[in-house]
Design a binder for these strands. Structure first.
Lengths: 123, 123
DNA sequence: CTGTATCCCCGAGGATACTG
DNA sequence: CAGTATCCTCGGGGATACAG
């Protein structure tokens, strides 16, 4: 598990350590849509391997951005959700998405929009 | 040079391709403080190598987020600045920084604040 | 279903020397 | 000053098999 430093020159460096991983922003984004199970996330992000999914989720959990809830059943059921703090990032992620959409439009890039922004705006 | 895809499932994936590089967010952040020369950036981010700095700047430039201005002098002078579009990301970066600051405070992480947020807020 | 455990490859990126 | 050009290492991350 990647440890955070005890001191940072600038908050942006801390943020990069927290959500700079290859899949973390994507995971947080999808978890902000709603709680998700392990294989549900795999289906949402088909390119991710089990190993990477586990690892990135564990780091997000370790840093307090994601909560992991295990239901003691057979077969096992595990649900991932964002913590209050992870959820605080939502406006930022949303801003990123908007900016990305702007970029795509300006550059004529196609978007198969899994766009959850509207839901967010209603709040 | 890393090419963008012609189509994305979701804007967040595009954003990750645009600024997901190891140093890109950091570079954009520092360039938002003001235009900077090559070695100035190296001093600001001592851990980055010349190679990486060049490469990441070239990608940002290629994607239209950063502008590179060469002054034909001896010795050469090259100034990097954010484009209008790159600048549009500033509120997002600022939001990330605020969130990082919150996190640091909650977790008791030390911050040697190169904090340019205040300047931003005045606008 | 939700993961570990292993093995292994490949390419991001560091170190260093050189250049216009 | 602002980069290229080379070489080489190292670990991120894929593939696969196995486990509770």
């Amino acid at each position: 598990m990647k440890e955070l430093q005890s001191e940072y020159q600038c908050a942006i460096n801390l943020v990069i350590d927290l959500i700079g991983g290859k899949w973390k922003v994507l995971l947080l984004w999808h978890l902000n849509e709603g709680d998700k199970r392990f294989n549900e996330l795999r289906r949402t992000i088909p390119e991710i391997t089990r190993k990477m999914l586990t690892q990135q989720l564990r780091e997000l959990e370790g840093h307090g951005l994601v909560k992991r809830t295990v239901f003691e059943e057979v077969p096992p059921r595990v649900v991932y959700s964002t913590t209050d703090f992870g959820r605080k990032l939502q406006p930022v992620l949303y801003g990123m998405c908007q900016w990305g959409d702007d970029y795509a439009e300006e550059q004529g890039i196609q978007m198969n929009s899994c766009w959850t922004g509207q839901d967010f705006m209603k709040k």
